Structure formats: structure tokens, C-alpha cells
Simulated assay, not measured.
Amino acid sequence: MFLMWPFPGNFAVNYDVCLMTRIQKMSLDYHFKVEQESGSSMHAFFGFNGTAGVWRVSAISEAGGWKDRTTVEDMDLAVRASLKGWQFLYVGDIRVKSELPSTLKAYRHQQHRWTCGATNLFRKMAPDIVRSKGVSVWMKFHLLYSFFFVRRVIAPILTFLFYCIVIPLSVMVPEVSIPVWGMFYIPTAITIMNAIRNPWSIHMVPIWILFENVMSMHRMRAALTGLLETMYVDEWVVTQKLGDHVREKLEVPLLTPVKPTECVERIYVPEVLVAFYLLVCASYDFVLGAGRYYLYIFLQAFAFLLLGFGFVGTAGPCSCP
């Protein structure tokens, strides 16, 4: 049996509006073209997400229906359906119109919801996956280790701790020596996979990696929140859209733009604090250290500063008293 849905090959309609939107499109292209397309071609599991998806009603019923126990109800249903023997098909030649968050604040909320929900689903579903009798041992291993543990738990935590904390701190400890391959093999592998499917975006890959390293700070917090089930595990903030999409001449618009207010959040303190830490480490390496990593750390600090002072994304409304 096959559970079929088409996915968008081009997620952002007007992705030249700002740098953040183009970077988001690169992340989604990697998600659709690498993860989902490869999973479909190998008849392996890949997560369902709610944009332009088509479900069989019998699959939803057999899996137990939609549940609101996590903030990733689409992924939850997909995992339960896969344990019932349903398979998934990616259709990449269908195009739909959608809209990405235009403000950094909205994007942070979206990434928190996705990451926190995925790790919390891992906590809730791990026993069911182990006990499931309808799938192979290989399928269980793929779900538990590759899909959940590596991609949803280890990846966000390791990215921030290693590239934004350990490497900068190591320049102040001469006894610590990080091999060059340890710094470059993961970014290089990601670059190659993006370049294969997105050769027209190869010039954006370094910027994309720096942006993703900044976002890993929020994803790490979200991953730990979902894994430990802290008080913010069920926090649901609807992603605000500013109406930056191309509208058709409809009587009722599909997406209504948010009316801007005079109160605009443009400074994000966590990013600024990390940028200050990185600048200290880079300056020390340049002046007193071995001079091995200062160029990378300066670039990373610059990325944190850009996002910390709101130079990425459009200006949007904030919650005013």
C-alpha cells in the first residue's frame, strides 16, 4: 500500500525578497530534494509535513488519527502510519505556492516548534517503535537512530556546542588540538549535497552554513526542551506571515498580511552575547594564540551580530504592552 502526497519543489514564491528567505529556501530544498526524494526512491521512511500533502483516509484511520500530543502532529501521524505498514511517495514535479516567515522572530518560533516537537515525539514514540511488530528491525533502527536520534537530537546540540563553543574556546587552551578534518568534514559534506541538487545556489552555501550555526543555538534549546519535557514543551506560537507572497486576484486572499505596528523588535540579546564571546575568542587567537581558527570565528561572530541586531529578515510587529 502506498500513501501518496505531492510536495513543492519551490517552496518560496518570492524568495528574492530578503536574504533570510533565500537561506530558508536552501534548507527546504535540502529537506525535500535530498532527504525526502532519497527516502522515497529507497522505499524508506521520511517525515510527512503539512504543505501540499495528500493522505489516504484509510491510512489516517488505521494509524489512529491526528493527535495533538506534540507540536509536530504531521510527523506524529507519519511515524504511526509507517509502523502500520504504510509507505510514502515523494512527487517532486508538482509546484504549489506558499510563504515563508519574513521576520527572524517568526522563524525562531517556527524552528523551536519543529525541533522541540520532534524530540518530544522521539521520547513518546521510542517505546512504541521498539515494540512494533509490523516493521523490520532495519526500519526500527532507521527511525530510532537516523531519523530521530541523529537528525533531531544530536545534530542541533552538536552543531552549536562544537562549532560555536568548543572550537572558539580551544584557541585559549594550547593543549587542545582539534584536527582540521574535524572542523570541515561535516560542512563539506553538507555543501556537496546542496551543490548537487542546487548548483545555482552554490555561492550562498557559506552564508547558509553560518546562518544555520546561529540557528543551532535555538534548535539546541528546543531539542533539550522536547527531550526533557520542560514547561515550554507544548508552546505553540503561530508563525506570522507578512504577506510578502505574490497574490492572485481572489475575492478572499489566502494569506492576510499582519498589520505593522510602531513597536519593532530588532535586537536579540542571546545572539549578541554569543557574538561578543566569539569576538573575544577570535581576537585572542589572532593576537596571542596560534592563529589557526580566528578567520572562521570572526565570520561566525559577524553572523551572530547580523542576526542579533536584526539585519537579516524584514522588520515586523512585536508584542507590545
Rank of each mutant, 00 (worst) to 15 (best):
H218V: 08
I196G: 01
R219M: 14
W208I: 01
I209Q: 15
T188E: 13
A222V: 04
V214S: 08
M215Y: 13
A189T: 11
F211N: 15
I207E: 14
T191F: 12
M193S: 11
N194T: 00
M193K: 10
P199Y: 07
V214W: 08
R221E: 10
P199D: 06
W200F: 03
I190E: 10
I186L: 13
P199Q: 09
R221T: 13
I209T: 12
Y185Q: 09
V205P: 01
I190L: 15
N194V: 00
F211G: 09
N213I: 05
A222S: 13
A195E: 04
S201C: 04
A195G: 08
P187W: 07
A189P: 01
I196V: 14
I186Q: 11
R197L: 06
M217V: 02
N198T: 01
A195P: 05
A195Q: 03
M193W: 01
I196S: 02
N198I: 00
P206H: 10
I192V: 13
P206I: 08
M217Q: 10
P199S: 11
I196P: 00
M220F: 13
I190P: 00
I190M: 14
I186G: 02
M217D: 02
T188G: 06
I190N: 06
N194R: 06
H203Q: 05
H203T: 07
P206Y: 11
W200S: 02
H218S: 14
W208L: 13
I207N: 08
R197P: 00
A195S: 13
R221H: 11
E212K: 14
I186T: 05
R219W: 07
I209R: 08
R221F: 14
N198M: 09
W200V: 01
I192H: 04
A189Y: 05
M193G: 00
M193E: 07
